[in-house]
């Protein structure tokens, strides 16, 4: 299997504070990784390094694809754009015509059960709905790498369960490399086929499910 992401002795410091030190691991095609570990250990930093939002202080990172989608803890929707416009914009930037983008956006909003709310501004949507729009935005791009940073942490357990199922179904339909950051092993295991546990800033343990 091809390596999609490689961390080679990667370290990251913010000022004097070391967040990651000498971390090495590889992620392969069709890996769905549940990235576990206590709060503040550096899980989000790993995602930010993969996405290019942060640069490593030491070591090397290899990412084979630039087609990356990222679902953050908060929905991070543009408040001045409607639900569908939030999905349309990245699609059009990625090269889709307006008509194509519209069809794709409608399909994903529909799959998230939001077709009735496509013209709503984020402020008019509930927290769960906003996070579903954010997920639809990420999935609609059919990324090679999907980064999920505790995307459902702010939701109640019932909503969380249904969104995890929805996500698992989407990944099944369109295979991609997924990194799913969570505090909860059981939640991660519903989606992941491998678990990586970051137990300290310099120790990442890999295990297959």
């Amino acid at each position: 299997m091809n390596k999609i992401i490689t961390f080679d002795s990667v370290g990251k410091k913010y000022g004097q504070k070391t967040v990651l030190s000498n971390i090495s691991f590889s992620i392969y095609e069709q890996d769905i990784i549940g990235l576990l570990g206590p709060s503040g250990i550096g899980k989000t930093t790993i995602l930010k390094l993969i996405s290019g939002l942060e640069k490593p202080t030491s070591g090397k990172i290899f990412v084979s694809s630039k087609k990356i989608s990222y679902v953050f803890q908060e929905p991070r929707l543009f408040p001045w754009k409607t639900a569908i416009e939030n999905i349309l914009l990245p699609l059009m930037v990625s090269g889709h015509s307006k008509k194509e983008a519209m069809n794709i956006a409608k399909h994903y909003l529909d799959s998230m059960g939001l077709s009735e709310f496509m013209d709503y501004y984020p402020a008019k949507l509930s927290g769960g709905m906003r996070q579903r729009v954010s997920l639809a935005r990420a999935l609609s791009l059919c990324p090679d790498i999907l980064l999920l940073d505790e995307p459902f942490s702010a939701l109640d357990s019932k909503r969380k369960g249904s969104l995890v199922e929805l996500l698992a179904k989407s990944i099944e339909e369109y295979p991609m490399v997924v990194l799913y950051v969570s505090h909860f092993p059981e939640e991660a295991k519903k989606i992941a086929n491998k678990i990586h546990t970051l137990s300290s800033k310099d120790k990442l343990v890999e295990s297959n499910l």
């Binding site: 939002l53 990356i68 989608s69 990222y70 991070r76 914009l89 930037v93 791009l141």
Partner: peptide, 9 residues
């Protein structure tokens, strides 16, 4: 950050 992730020109 969202604009960077989705590579907005």
């Amino acid at each position: 950050e969202v604009a960077k992730i989705y590579k907005f020109p």
